[in-house]
Nucleic acid binder design. Structure first.
Ligand SMILES: [Mn+2]
Ligand SMILES: [Mn+2]
Ligand SMILES: [Mn+2]
Ligand SMILES: [Mn+2]
Lengths: 220, 220
DNA sequence: AAAATAATTTAGACTTGTCTAAAAATTTTA
DNA sequence: TAAAATTTTTAGACAAGTCTAAATTATTTT
């Protein structure tokens, strides 16, 4: 039994956990959920009581396997609903996130299972993020931050890290959507900007600000 | 801005209102929502404050046009989701109601609109209940309670009034689903039971208990 | 038309989730 | 390493929604 508020906290803690194995700080959770540090402390105690996180006063939390399973099940639902909204209801990729934030809390594993089948067992959501499987396993797929790439060559855009509508609309205008292929032709050492070129010969510049929010895989 | 709790109260009041133009009593709402009379009084005051109902102390409430519009919009969503769950996700008709109770509170008119289009603008839900249109108009369709029918003859089952899984499973076992056609061949004056016969010659008895929860239209 | 019964409202309390302001602990700075 | 700055926790309060028990009001019975 988790409330949707608890689910949102667990999701935030899970996302802040991935990538670094340090504790997640109260202030980071507060920032991520746009809430006060005091509220976070209260909720952390509750989640700790339920063995969803390990809490050490003044030193943040670590999510437990139990908490992670809940988080991954919500993330699975979120991403499946995003696929539904985009593939079936024809929403644009910058419109699906907010609706999925509501739909993900409808609590039925049977619903999730049937939705998955109806959508044809998709592996990625409209933003290129992998959909955790029923057991909560995430098939991460050798994707790297474009900003970390050091070799020129052909890449395919596999996902984004910033899901805000304004960023997604910016990308779409530039021709950058998941699945887009391009070649890095120039990398600037000073400002970490790069020039890429699409198969249709169109060429654009990408700033560090943007490239650190783009996930790519090497192509061919 | 209505909370999902307010929405549930408005739905209950709306349903208790249709059919009789008397005020809806506190105890009726409490019974319908399985809550205490004291809680109902509290919420009624809040809805009255918001001009969703007209409240006269000790004499129940009447839903306003404003409150009715909210109720109908939730009922519209509820029934559309039921169609989705049955037609697309292949749930059975006795499984869709509880899930729809959750999905109906996802607040987006755009979502409702697109879901409607995706489903092919259905006019009735899996239980034969009419789906209110965007303007909150219900196209009620000359259906009568089977228990009120006095003429023998051919009828088509158009809906049910009891949505409980146990009742729906009972009906299905007997061959009674929306769209089923049958002929009333016998009506008993004493216990108000009737005998009906299907096109495949199978014949069954129906008690008053059951017939007062079945909606039918005359056929041919 | 009282008295008895039933329905409704009020009073007061509890839970969940939130906040601000003050206190305590940690980290940074000098 | 002691003072200053920052972060975190605690204390106390509030809103929404709920409950039980007591007080009101309405209805039914006699
Ligand atoms: Mn999303
Ligand atoms: Mn996504
Ligand atoms: Mn229903
Ligand atoms: Mn229905």
């Amino acid at each position: 039994m988790t409330t949707s508020t608890e689910e949102n906290y667990l999701k935030a803690i899970y996302h802040l956990s991935t990538g670094n194995q340090n504790s997640v700080l109260t202030s980071a959770i507060a920032g991520s959920l746009s809430t006060s540090a005091a509220s976070v402390t209260d909720m952390i105690k509750k989640l700790s009581e339920k063995n969803m996180v390990e809490y050490e006063r003044y030193h943040g939390v670590r999510i437990t396997r139990k908490g992670e399973k809940v988080a991954l099940s919500i993330i699975r639902r979120h991403r499946l609903w995003e696929v539904f909204l985009m593939d079936k209801l024809k929403f644009k990729w910058d419109e699906v996130h907010d609706l999925a934030e509501e739909l993900e809390h409808v609590s039925s594993d049977e619903l999730t299972k049937r939705l998955d089948a109806f959508l044809g067992f998709p592996k990625f959501d409209p933003h290129g993020d992998p959909i955790p499987d029923t057991n909560g396993k995430v098939h991460s797929n050798g994707q790297e931050l474009l900003s970390e790439i050091t070799k020129k060559g052909k890449y395919i855009l596999s996902g984004v890290n910033d899901h805000s509508p304004s960023f997604l609309q910016y990308l779409e205008k530039k021709g950058l959507i998941p699945g887009s292929t391009f070649t890095i032709v120039e990398m600037d050492e000073f400002d970490n900007s790069m020039q890429i070129i699409f198969s249709n010969k169109k060429s654009i510049f990408i700033s560090k600000e943007v490239s650190k929010n783009l996930l790519v895989r090497s192509h061919e």
